[in-house]
């Protein structure tokens, strides 16, 4: 089985794996910056929101495949 698969979208197996690792790396970097901001800034509520939104968007799109909701995941 190569090329198009219902579960994760187009691309070869290796492509998909690489995409997953890139997503995870981005999430890790965002988390670390978020932590650094929170520790060093007084009252960081507004500053943390973009991090939460960005991380949430990354997870929903690349990990949970929310865009597949429209097509049902086939093709």
């Amino acid at each position: 089985m190569t090329a198009v698969t219902p579960a994760t979208g187009p691309g070869t197996y290796n492509d998909r794996v690489r995409l997953g690792w890139i997503t995870a790396a981005l999430l890790a970097v965002l988390t670390l910056i978020e932590y650094a901001v929170a520790i060093n800034v007084e009252n960081p509520l507004i500053l943390l929101l973009p991090f939460v939104l960005a991380k949430g968007a990354l997870i929903m799109d690349f990990f949970m495949h929310i865009r597949k909701l429209k097509t049902g995941g086939d093709h």
Partner: peptide, 9 residues
């Protein structure tokens, strides 16, 4: 994610 991708392939 890797488990899901492995299963799909």
């Amino acid at each position: 994610y890797l488990a899901e991708t492995a299963n799909a392939h």
